[in-house]
Amino acid sequence: MAVQEFVSPTSLSEAQQAVGDGTASSWLAGGTDLLVGIRLGARDPARVIDLKQIPELTAIQVDETAVRIGAAASAFDVLHNSDVPSQFPGLAEALNLIGSTQITGRCSAGGNLCNASPAADSIPALIANGAKCRILGPDGERTLAVEDFVVGPNQNALASSELLIELILPRPTPGTSDAYLRLTPRTEMDIAVAGAGVSITMDESGECTAARIAIGAVAPTALLVEAAAEALMGSQLDQTAIDAAVAAVRAAARPICDKRGTAEYRIHVVGVLASRALANARARIKKAHS
């Protein structure tokens, strides 16, 4: 089979109509996973529905309380938005790593999330920032935390007629910053062997008052490691606290051995990455404080 139909709705309601008739359909945002999947025979939709002509889906909006990233907004647009990279430098790090400049120009955070690769770079960063998914279905809208949106390797929580509209990230409170790091053999053009996204909040005294740590490529889905966050809460992010967080991260990891790395290696490295990401986030907070 080959793609039989390409449609390009210009509104959410048109999009819902396009998916409604039971034809095997795929949403197309940046296409950097979908088109590779079709090429390699892993995906076989009869209809492709392009989402990029729907204004809500490519918009990036910043208000008092939240940043809203349209599900089809390209990583490049997010990276060059006037607010997002400065508010979420860790998310920007993750989006920048998704692929080459060519890929970043097309791929979207929403698509990266829907593709739900265990190694996706943006997912730990989104989870660390407490991002929520706004989902539109035939029966209306629902909202889901990113960590609940990914349900398995390349599996998300969307029903076949549902559509991810946007990602909502609560704006960071003062003294908050995030960071994302991954390990790949090459500097670019690679898939994470392990990844760690963190977001922490520190008060003026240097005490950690909030923390979220998420890890990627070490389990069937990206994981929010609550025990790691607990280890940091109330601490001065001293070595003991960081060691405890790293231990929690490693305990949570349950990776596989594959062509990209051994389980043992991944468990070790995800801890290293978490610890370094924490140091980066802390340095960012310190810089903002000073």
Partner: peptide, 14 residues
């Protein structure tokens, strides 16, 4: 690893 993603030849930034 029959592709340039997993057959890792050096890229410029390496």
């Amino acid at each position: 690893n029959p592709g340039f993603l997993d057959y890792r030849i050096p890229v410029a930034s390496d």
